[in-house]
Amino acid sequence: MSDFIESAKNLVNSAVSRTGWEAQKQMRVRGKQGEIDKLLEQRQKLLDDLALTAMNLYQQGALTDSRLSRLCASVLELDHDVKTREGQLQDIKNEAYSPDQYGSVQTPDYTPPPVNPTPSANAGTSQQAGASAGAQSLCPNCGQPIRANALYCRNCGAKLR
């Protein structure tokens, strides 16, 4: 009987020892992960500073690397798109419900808008020759396709408007 108690005691001691070791291991893992997270935060702050510096140089016309210029032009284009959509969102939020707008009265002369709007008058002929999946005009600087309403060329960074 004393052998059984001794064996049970050893088993419990072993389990407690193993549990303590696992807990210490988890604490070390979490500590090391915390150190890594702090280093990654510092890295992200440096990358943000680098991006801000590159954008400032680009806007001043002092950025000489063409790859960085293309990235900066894309960022500015996306910023413009975001502002446009934020304005559209605000317009939607400001809409007021009018019970009359959903009435059963229908206007007989209503025609839906065209599916593919016609290109603007100042668009080049290359826009009309574009692919059927959305006509695109070409950058006057590098000749690469550009998106409709783009402010900057994503390829060369040239200002389009």
Rank of each mutant, 00 (worst) to 15 (best):
C153I: 08
P140K: 12
S7M: 07
K83G: 05
D48M: 12
T53K: 14
Y152N: 00
R43M: 08
D79K: 12
A15C: 04
G87R: 09
N94R: 11
V115A: 09
K9T: 13
A123R: 00
P114I: 07
V75L: 07
Y152M: 10
T53M: 14
M27Y: 05
Q60H: 12
S2L: 03
R18G: 00
P140T: 01
T53V: 11
T19E: 07
R43G: 00
Q144K: 14
G61V: 02
D49F: 13
N149T: 11
L151H: 08
K25C: 12
G61L: 06
M1N: 03
G31T: 14
R154F: 04
R70W: 00
K38W: 07
Q60V: 01
S126Q: 05
N122Y: 05
P119T: 09
N149H: 15
D91C: 03
R28N: 14
M1V: 04
E41W: 04
V82F: 11
K38T: 08
T19S: 11
S120W: 04
I146A: 00
F4W: 04
R70M: 03
V105P: 06
R147L: 14
P112W: 01
E95P: 00
T125L: 14
G31S: 12
L57K: 01
R28K: 14
K83R: 15
S14A: 05
Q44M: 11
